[in-house]
Simulated scan of single mutants.
Amino acid sequence: MAFPSDPITSPQNPRIKNLLKLQQKSSERRTQGLTIIEGLRELTIAHGAGVAVPALFVCPELAGTERLAQLQALFAESRPEWFAVSRPVFEKVAYREGSDGVLALARPPQRTLASLHLPKAPLLLVLEAVEKPGNLGAILRTADAAQATAVIVCDPRTDLFNPNAIRSSIGCSFTVPTVATTREELLAWCQQHGIRTYAAALTEHAVPYTTCDFRGPTALVMGTEADGLTPELRQACTQTIIIPMRGAIDSLNVSTATAILTFEAVRQRGA
């Protein structure tokens, strides 16, 4: 394809410098209302979810003819700006090894609890103070696979559309409604909508997750791997639950634990 301008060959180009800012600083992503999506697969999923993409940065050498043709077809109607980028410069802004030469600026959706459309028996995944983008991305993949109603993050320590979270989610950051809120707002909202909250935590009153009924309005509440749930949130939940451990270890990775609980809820619901 013919690009509308000459290839970007300098890392000092203002557009390249801005890409690096967006990649590295959550404050820039918030201020500009933009994030970065790398990879054709992730970009295709985001586009299918209706995410606006104002600009594409493509390395023709890495992307190849077939991938360029797929991009052209994908964005034939929305027509974002296209920029060719030399391989050395693209590899400077790419944030994963073996990149396919496709990177995009995207406008992530801004959602609130009030904007969520709840079915009769919503299934919500709640994460408190999540700080690792990889864990957030993995949980978003689980939410997409299970068709959870939403992922709600209380007091997040990473922004929901961190490029590494998008990469780990393989684009599912955009297929699942995701909201950042506070603990207080979440608890009030769950009470208002009659949603039972199940806190995953090792306490003396915790019951095995298989003994719980997740068929009604349900929120599965998960803490960080390092600290677990705060006492305030744990004590405010309807029930504390555990995944019984049979070995020497007493807990699982938070994304693994979330997947186990989520698909138990899906099984109970007969999906």
Results as ranks from 00 to 15, higher is better:
residue 150 A to E: 06
residue 96 R to Y: 05
residue 122 P to Y: 14
residue 97 E to G: 13
residue 116 L to A: 10
residue 84 A to H: 09
residue 124 L to S: 05
residue 140 L to K: 13
residue 134 G to V: 00
residue 107 R to E: 02
residue 73 A to E: 13
residue 75 F to K: 15
residue 73 A to C: 03
residue 135 N to C: 05
residue 110 Q to W: 01
residue 136 L to Q: 09
residue 91 E to L: 15
residue 143 A to I: 11
residue 130 V to K: 10
residue 145 A to F: 08
residue 128 E to C: 11
residue 126 V to I: 15
residue 155 D to L: 10
residue 152 I to R: 02
residue 123 L to Y: 04
residue 151 V to S: 03
residue 133 P to Q: 04
residue 98 G to M: 13
residue 100 D to A: 04
residue 80 P to E: 06
residue 79 R to H: 06
residue 76 A to E: 14
residue 140 L to T: 05
residue 84 A to W: 05
residue 117 H to G: 06
residue 142 T to C: 02
residue 158 T to L: 12
residue 85 V to D: 03
residue 128 E to L: 09
residue 141 R to I: 09
residue 137 G to P: 09
residue 77 E to T: 12
residue 100 D to G: 05
residue 156 P to F: 02
residue 97 E to N: 12
residue 138 A to E: 03
residue 121 A to Y: 09
residue 109 P to H: 05
residue 72 Q to A: 02
residue 102 V to K: 08
residue 107 R to V: 09
residue 79 R to N: 05
residue 123 L to C: 02
residue 85 V to T: 12
residue 100 D to V: 07
residue 85 V to M: 07
residue 90 F to Q: 05
residue 104 A to G: 03
residue 135 N to A: 02
residue 77 E to R: 15
residue 82 W to P: 00
residue 91 E to R: 14
residue 112 T to F: 07
residue 95 Y to D: 04
residue 123 L to G: 02
residue 138 A to K: 00
residue 75 F to W: 12
residue 109 P to S: 04
residue 125 L to N: 04
residue 98 G to N: 15
residue 74 L to I: 00
residue 85 V to K: 08
residue 96 R to T: 13
residue 136 L to V: 10
